[in-house]
């Protein structure tokens, strides 16, 4: 385990980091997420796939899907490429562990500080994503993932529970802008609920 002498900071500084409830919706920055990307090389074999599945504890996610194991979760990001998410407290060295587990058939990159993970909760989040993004959120159900744009920012949208619980991964440098965009969409959707 590494020895740190500097304090880690989240993408959003207080008070922006506090969970933001708007009507029935809430936006929270998840600061305790370890992220790594896995890209298959030409030498990727069936054994590599099995080692990968064994590491995450479930089958490798299919196209446009994400899966959750006991410790790790993973989602498909491109042909032959996946993202793996875990707890930062217990799996800080996720990228190294993945590389050790799968071997030379893949390239693994640590993504911990590249992405910020937001959690969106609330009843009827579909109306929020209707405002934010161009994908068909109404055909989206638990376990679906899409890479798309929100306010010109590239991001991953993960559906953890149909219309009620989503996670949003966006480049860390866009965290404030994305938070602002989501909160505005919350306000628009919450205002309509009152009508």
């Amino acid at each position: 385990m590494c020895e740190y002498r500097l304090s880690a900071v989240a993408a959003l500084s207080p008070p922006n980091r506090e969970p933001k409830p708007v009507g029935s919706f809430q936006l929270t920055e998840l600061t305790e997420v370890s992220i790594a990307s896995v890209a298959s090389r030409n030498t990727f074999t069936e054994e590599c796939g099995q080692s990968f599945a064994q590491f995450i504890g479930v089958d490798i996610p299919a196209i446009g899907q994400f899966v959750r194991g006991a410790v790790h979760s993973a989602f498909w990001s491109a042909p032959g490429q996946w993202f793996v998410l875990s707890s930062h407290n217990t799996n800080e060295e996720l990228a190294g562990d993945l590389k050790d587990a799968i071997g030379s058939g893949v390239s693994v990159s640590e993504q911990n500080d590249a992405w910020t993970c937001f959690e969106l909760t609330g009843s009827g989040l579909n109306s929020v994503f209707e405002r934010l993004a161009g994908f068909d959120v109404h055909s989206f159900s638990t376990g679906d993932v899409v890479r798309t744009t929100i306010e010109h920012m590239g991001c991953f949208v993960l559906c953890l529970e149909t219309s009620n619980l989503f996670q949003l991964l966006v480049a860390r440098s866009y965290a404030r802008a994305m938070s602002h965009a989501v909160l505005q969409a919350f306000q628009s959707s919450a205002a309509l609920e009152k009508v």
Partner: peptide, 12 residues
């Protein structure tokens, strides 16, 4: 026939 890059998607 033309080449398109799925930049804001799966990058294919």
């Amino acid at each position: 026939r033309e080449l398109w890059f799925h930049e804001q998607g799966d990058r294919s």
